[in-house]
Design a protein around this nucleic acid. Structure first.
Ligand SMILES: [Zn+2]
Ligand SMILES: [Zn+2]
Ligand SMILES: [Zn+2]
Ligand SMILES: [Zn+2]
Lengths: 137, 137
DNA sequence: ATAAACCTTAGAGTACACACCAAGGTCAAG
DNA sequence: CTTGACCTTGGTGTGTACTCTAAGGTTTAT
């Protein structure tokens, strides 16, 4: 399968596939006489793995690690894989916590403001940002 | 106040201050004879405004908008300010939702894996990423 | 007078995940 | 045999918020 058809089937762009190849995430099975990339069954499976990993939040760098483990499963342990997963989960949790603080602060700010069409001279959002310390602590 | 002292007082780097100046977020009150930046009371207040806005999750681009409103309050309405705040809040909410889906999927994956020291040949995390579709749908 | 500590500018580099472009080669249909 | 759709490489651009570097000027203290 040439790159265009392969990309269509997976719902990604050809640019993405070339990018993944350059970054050692997915190498096409072979090349045609004209130098065209030729993707086979194995490439399809691997690309699906990559997309699923992306869907659960892994970055491309993390996916690369997972692939290296997958290629040589007997040289790696469940421990390693679970660690990667848990580390990622905890990182995501931290980010969620930070964003939740933002959300909370923004809600408080929004609730203070009347949102009317009058000039913003006395807007509580602006005065709060001007005057009050420790909005998030 | 010269840039170094000003930066120290606010807990930011001098690079950050020059960056903010270049991007029209904060211009020092004046320059000394030698061309050194000289920050005054107004700059201090404005920088505190910027840092508070950052603390509630606004991006520098958004803060720039807020500053422009703040400079000419009578030309803008509460409506505008509240809109910015609510839009940001909703964007943050979307991102939280996405990350929460990631967290959920990662937890499911982690729970499946024994995490032991044996080889990863039958690791449930890897086989799940290999085999199962629609992990997040 | 000289060293340390500060300041200036412009520009490059970082991470992430691609998107877009130019200039050219290849292949099938009509 | 030419048109159009596809493919190749290499390189640049995007957004975010800085950080770092180079090469040089200034201030302060000893
Ligand atoms: Zn109002
Ligand atoms: Zn208001
Ligand atoms: Zn196991
Ligand atoms: Zn396992």
């Amino acid at each position: 399968m040439k790159i265009g058809e392969f990309a269509n089937q997976l719902g990604v762009s050809t640019d993405t596939l070339r990018y993944y190849e350059k970054h050692n995430l997915l190498t096409p099975s072979s090349r045609t006489g004209a130098g065209y990339r030729d993707y086979g069954e194995a490439a399809l499976k691997q690309m699906k793995f990559i997309l699923r990993a992306k869907n659960v939040g892994f970055s491309l760098a993390e996916i690369k690690e997972l692939l290296q483990i997958k290629f040589k499963k007997h040289q790696h342990s469940c421990h390693e894989v679970k660690n990667l997963t848990i580390q990622k989960r905890d990182l995501v949790a931290e980010r969620i916590a930070e964003l939740t603080r933002f959300h909370q602060s923004l809600s408080v700010l929004a609730d203070k403001c009347c949102g009317g069409q009058e000039p913003a001279d006395n807007c509580s959002i602006l005065t709060t940002l001007e005057d009050i310390d420790g909005l998030t602590q």
